[in-house]
Design a protein around this nucleic acid. Sequence first.
DNA 1: CGTTTGGTTCCATTATTTGAAACTTAGTCT
DNA 2: AGACTAAGTTTCAAATAATGGAACCAAACG
Lengths: 261, 261
Amino acid sequence: MSAEGNSDGTVGKALDVLDMVAGAGRPVRFSELLADSAFPKATLYRFLQTLTNQGMLMLDPDRGTYTLGVRLVRWAHAAWAQSSLAPVARPYLDVLSAETAETIHLAQMDQGQVLYVDKRNAARPIEMFAQAGKVGPAYCTGVGKAMLAYLSDEDLQAAIDRQSFHRFTEHTYDTPTKLRAELRLIRDRGYAFDREEHEPGIICIAAPILTRAGRVIGALSVTSTTQRTTLAALEIHATRVIETAAQIAAEAEAWRFPQHT
Amino acid sequence: MSAEGNSDGTVGKALDVLDMVAGAGRPVRFSELLADSAFPKATLYRFLQTLTNQGMLMLDPDRGTYTLGVRLVRWAHAAWAQSSLAPVARPYLDVLSAETAETIHLAQMDQGQVLYVDKRNAARPIEMFAQAGKVGPAYCTGVGKAMLAYLSDEDLQAAIDRQSFHRFTEHTYDTPTKLRAELRLIRDRGYAFDREEHEPGIICIAAPILTRAGRVIGALSVTSTTQRTTLAALEIHATRVIETAAQIAAEAEAWRFPQHT
DNA sequence: CGTTTGGTTCCATTATTTGAAACTTAGTCT
DNA sequence: AGACTAAGTTTCAAATAATGGAACCAAACG
């Protein structure tokens, strides 16, 4: 979680610093960052200055702490609007949400993890920013497995290498072998289950969003709890989830979607 | 429209390139970017490669077009949660929204522009990502002027230098001089009006959010239309807006600086 | 096919980054 | 107060990475 060994020249290093601040998840002092980083004092200092100048970081002058800058929020808006499935999928999610009255997730793959890009909440109005942008593990979520199942061999291998296989619950597939077996079943079935693999009591069914060429560009899930319903009952939505995924795929293809990895 | 006099070394230049892609608002080809940029072919090419490697940009291999990468969405979530006022302000906005039954905006300053970080819609609640993250001009919006009015002299000068002073409506303050006079009034009054300066028919009253030390950290507005109400009628909310701004400021200060002298 | 257009790579030159060390505060201890 | 310490800032010659003109490649065009 801490140090990327990455090195795309100066820019790469600067972004590593950004990541470090992002990773902290709270305002951090220069000295804290210095302790965690491989950079010498002066170098880190200069990066911090540059990033602050650029609005990527914010320096609280009273406290001398750094946080992520709001400029990122601005870019994210553009990124979300321009290169996520969310804008395209929105109307379809609305329909599915109304039909199922359950929580809907729309996700994409990002660096081997699941990135949620949109959500419809069963009950109350949504808190989009609080939800979209969140990341989760791929190997133990419905959307994650749905996407993994349709990855090319080499992309799958790369993704598997990035999984932690932490055993969140007793149902978590905690080895690559078990996971691969599960993925095979998912591919045969056409959609994935989450059997309380990530959080106890949380179940879902999820379908991949595929281009005509068969490339995964995202996934879609209907989520519920074991208190409200059962997996079997949830499965009646399978057809509609798959349909919706297909509709989104078709729409997205009209816009010729970039490749996500 | 991008004045790249930026002097933050290589990182700054790379971010300018990112901005260029973001600014396009659609997938762009290498050659388009080349035409718009001052960089020579090879240089621009290398930046694009680096940014793509870093996940800040995405390259559609079929079309040869670049879009913003989803990694930004991920960072933005962290930025929003960690260094925007939005999470802190949320409950207060909810109350104000219920009380006024008008549209509420929460904004912060970003590079001389207004960045909206949260919103409550008069009618229906939705679309956070689609709304938050949007930017607008500072010199002709309520929140913008409220923030400008409390900037330090040098920050104000820097901000003014970045304004376009485009005359959106007949009420727009279209020169620095007029704007400065208006800002003085706002400071005296404690809150700002928007008298259809940005969009015809749209009016608002806005208050700055200030730390105890007097630093501007954001602004808050209640917006309506000339069809629904008048500026005079809207002004009855002034006290509550200022109160709410104070509450958010207090909360933000407590939350971000737990320990105090 | 010869030509144009759009994209990628080379590599000697040049400018930027680097980081040890010196310096400046601001804060603590005696 | 004065001496020490920790945290942050600046300097500057050496090391390194960025630069960009030009060559190259590959489609698409005529």
